[in-house]
Design a protein around this nucleic acid. Structure first.
Length: 506
RNA sequence: GGCCCCAUGGUCUAGCGGUUAGGACGUUGGCCUCUCACGCCAUAAGCCCGGGUUCGAUUCCCGGUGGGGUCACCA
């Protein structure tokens, strides 16, 4: 057993070792996720602790789902938190570009190497056959799922010719499947060697038919080229790490050290998901948590300063950081405790500083202006402004005063209301335009949604207005939703669903 | 289901062979107080189970159980 270490031996870099280079590699496919921030925090702290570099790399190899706006949002969210990266798509660096979609030629050249050395092969199996294969494997309850290796035996020259002739194909990793072969790597957080039998490792696709690499290939190539020394990521990657190790071996490269952190969990211990918890970093920003509070809170998840200390700054975390103080288990993200931290931090501010914070966020001039534009026509006295726009502040709202109006929506039962809200919340996330949460896009999405579901706009919009504001009267619905922001709307629509579910007598 | 990871009160954790098992959030009760909040004091609640190793296991090893992850031309 290589690489095991007694648990009482703290992990310290060997003297004379180069400073670490670490990275986070978010995929720009949605709202900036707290899981990204969590992993980012540990990478950042580790890099700073040992005077290394923290790299931000955008893994936009999924052409279907990646968007520029998501990438921008991720950068914005990480900046808000104060996790500064030394190299990245915006600041550049010696290993640019840092956006994988701009490194296609690099991956293709590396795939050629693998093809030439026989570590990879072209595969002409189409999606239909793969789906069929999968169906059969599932039906037969096979334990090992995955590609059956049909194209492994193809003559490389012939395969190359077919590809050159324009036949669609992918390139797969040729996993050495000889009886008894295993692939192992050390997880330095766990202090264990993790070993997996090669027969359980799939001949992973490395290059997709659209010419883009998969995560596995791009990740290994870039980590090597960018001289990443320590890969600190979520434990969801543990089972695919052997594929990466095989790739390092195929290229003749030395793999980095691996640290797999436990995944953030919902209250029911499943992996943190937006169905059960707010997961967007912007949710926490827009509902008025201070970045240092969030950072400190996340720092207490999985990490401990030791003893009784749990309130600490990121600088304190950096100076005290030690891998031996990181727990491998997946912590529950407890919003109540975050609130307690947040309240304490607000109280610790002097009034002047608090005013500064609020002026810069909750009451930022730009935001106020947007609100005023809609309040102006609806108030009689300047002083009415605050109560009038109160719907745009705070988290959950109380539906008790307005629930009768919901019940009065003609011809719609409780179950129907719950269902439509759930569908609405779900589909709006998938709509490329609407998820920007701009009024116009919201409106066109919502009207289309009504049509598709056979609801009159009037009924749905009334329901949404009540759900989002807790009131029956407000500025035009889509302006209101835009003013409240995506995360607040999401939170309140969920709140409305919960309120409806609680109305047992209806 | 196969494989992999994990395991201290409800939650986050301290503990690194011998402790009255400590702290924080939450709970409950009280104090403070015009109310609420804050603050303060107190409270109930935990080492998953079974084998080893050891004079001695919460701690080390193995097994079980439980939880999680993963089995895509998504990351």
């Amino acid at each position: 057993m290589v690489g095991t270490r007694p648990m009482n031996e703290p992990h310290r870099p060997v003297l004379g070792q180069l400073p670490p280079r670490v990275r986070i590699a978010p995929s720009p496919t949605g709202d900036p996720h707290v899981g990204t921030a969590y992993i980012g925090l540990f990478n950042y702290v580790f890099a700073r602790k040992y005077g290394g570099q923290f790299v931000l790399r955008i893994e936009d190899t999924d052409q279907e789902r990646s968007t520029a706006s998501s990438e921008a949002a991720i950068l914005e969210a990480l900046r808000w938190l104060g996790l500064r990266w030394d190299e990245g798509p915006d600041v550049g660096g010696p290993h640019h570009p840092y956006r994988q979609s701009e490194r296609l030629a690099i991956y293709q050249a590396h795939v050629q190497r693998l093809l030439a050395s026989g570590h990879a092969y072209r595969c002409f199996c189409g999606r239909e056959r793969l789906e069929e294969l999968r169906k059969v494997q599932l039906a037969e309850k096979q334990d090992v799922l995955g590609y059956d290796g049909r194209c492994r035996a193809l003559d490389p020259a012939e395969a190359a010719a077919r590809a050159a002739a324009g036949e669609a194909c992918t390139v797969r990793l040729r996993v050495p499947k000889e009886e008894g072969r295993v692939t192992a790597f050390d997880d330095d957080l766990r202090g264990e060697t993790i070993t997996i039998e090669n027969r359980l490792i799939d001949d992973q696709v490395l290059l997709k038919s659209d010419g883009f690499p998969t995560y596995h290939l791009a990740n290994v190539v870039d980590d090597h080229l960018m001289e990443i020394t320590h890969v600190i990521r979520g434990e969801e990657w543990i089972t695919s790490t052997p594929k990466h190790v095989l790739l390092y071996q195929a290229f003749g490269w030395t793999p980095p050290r691996f640290y797999h952190l436990g995944l953030l969990r919902n209250a029911d211990r499943s992996k943190l998901s937006k169905r059960k918890n707010p997961v967007s970093i912007f949710h926490y920003r827009d509902l008025g948590y201070m970045p240092e509070t969030l950072l400190n809170f996340m720092g207490t998840l999985g990490y401990s300063m030791g003893g009784d200390v749990e309130r600490f700054t990121i600088d304190e975390m950096i100076t005290h950081f030690d891998w031996a103080r990181v727990s491998p288990g997946g912590p529950v993200f407890d919003p109540d405790k975050l609130d307690a931290f947040s309240g304490a931090d607000i109280r610790a501010l002097d009034v002047e500083a608090l005013l500064g914070r609020i002026s810069a966020t909750v009451l930022a001039p730009e935001r106020l202006k947007g609100l005023l534009a809609h309040a102006q026509g609806r108030i009689a006295r300047l002083d009415d402004f605050i109560p009038y726009v109160s719907f745009a502040f705070g988290g959950a709202v109380d539906y008790a005063p307005v629930i009768s109006h919901v019940k009065a929506i003609k011809g719609r039962g409780r179950a129907q209301l719950i269902a439509i809200l759930e569908e609405y919340a779900q589909e709006i996330e998938r709509d490329r335009e609407a998820r920007s949460f701009e009024a116009l896009a919201l409106e066109s999405f919502s009207r289309g949604f009504c049509q598709a579901k056979g609801w009159k706009p009037k009924e749905l919009f009334a329901l949404l207005r009540i759900a989002v504001t807790g009131r029956t009267a407000a500025p035009p619905l889509f302006d209101t939703m835009a003013l409240c922001g995506k995360d607040r709307c999401r939170l309140r629509i969920r709140g409305m669903i919960a309120a409806l579910q609680a109305e047992a007598d209806w």
